[in-house]
Amino acid sequence: LDTFDTLFADRVIGNLLNRVDFCTACGSECIRCRKVYGMEPGTELAGIVSLPSPMPHLLERPVEHVPPDIPEHDVLLAIAVHEQVLLEILKQAPSFGLRAVVVPLETPDWISESARAQAHIICEDLGIEIAFPKPFCSFRPPANSVLGEFRRLFHIGMPDVSLEVRDRTITSAKVSVSAACGATYCVARWLEGRSLSENIELEVISRWWHSYPCTASMERDPELGGETPLHVAGQAHLGILSPWKSHVVDEDPLVLSPLGTMVQRPIPPEENRRNIEGAMRAVLATLETRGSISLEDLRGSVAFSPAILNMALLTLKHQGLTRTDGMVISRP
């Protein structure tokens, strides 16, 4: 049986419907910042169609699992659903009037590579636009596409916040597009009144985006250049400042080293602790299954840099959670 994430969809729906009690991030400091926002005229949530979780990994007749109550719609947002059922629904798309599909991937394994390829083929044949943003807040389709219209009208996708700045102070931060979970409203609210001269990247954006909290995966993904969806989501929010602080978003992963070679950009210091903790968990999980492991094998089996892995191993040893015997790591 496969289980499917049910929480992210709840957050997206809560954000879209802008329920009064939906966001609780600011606690007692809530100023109902979301009350000035709402759905655009001409937009409508035609329906929420639910599939059960868990479901068998392999369905013999996926078509029998297509819910009978799918309403007519222009855009389908498929959040963490069984990929075989999704493919069946895409095949039936013309009967719903479907023009575009968004399949957000907050975690890389929400859909397999083969299902993604099949979905592309089905949609291409039917003339339907499809996107697999990973994570959802990296979703920025061309403005003149159906998907672009969807992002603009429903205000979800890669964050877009209009800042009004006077004397380097942000006097207003209006959200045009929010992360689908709604985090951007919270970030924008706390940007108002702050000075561009302060470290608002860390003190406002990272802080509030993180504590909202962002639920994108912390799994490193080769498709993201070895970054995690969580990191990409953070960068998308830092991009809010890019018209004002052009150095903020630097997407080039390679930098020139003092030795004249191109090397991976170093990880920002504030991420180190999080990465070390992630590496510690990975090491403990590995030892859970195999008792002991050589340093060489460990390096091959977990996707962390040698420096992060070494820090994790030192910390684990210091805490008495592992034992090292030469180059072999084991449980005490």
């Binding site: 969809a9 639910s50 059960p52």
Partner: peptide, 11 residues
């Protein structure tokens, strides 16, 4: 523009 959301719910 009409949007439909497909999601999973714990059964």
């Amino acid at each position: 523009m009409k949007l439909a959301i497909l999601r999973s719910v714990r059964s």
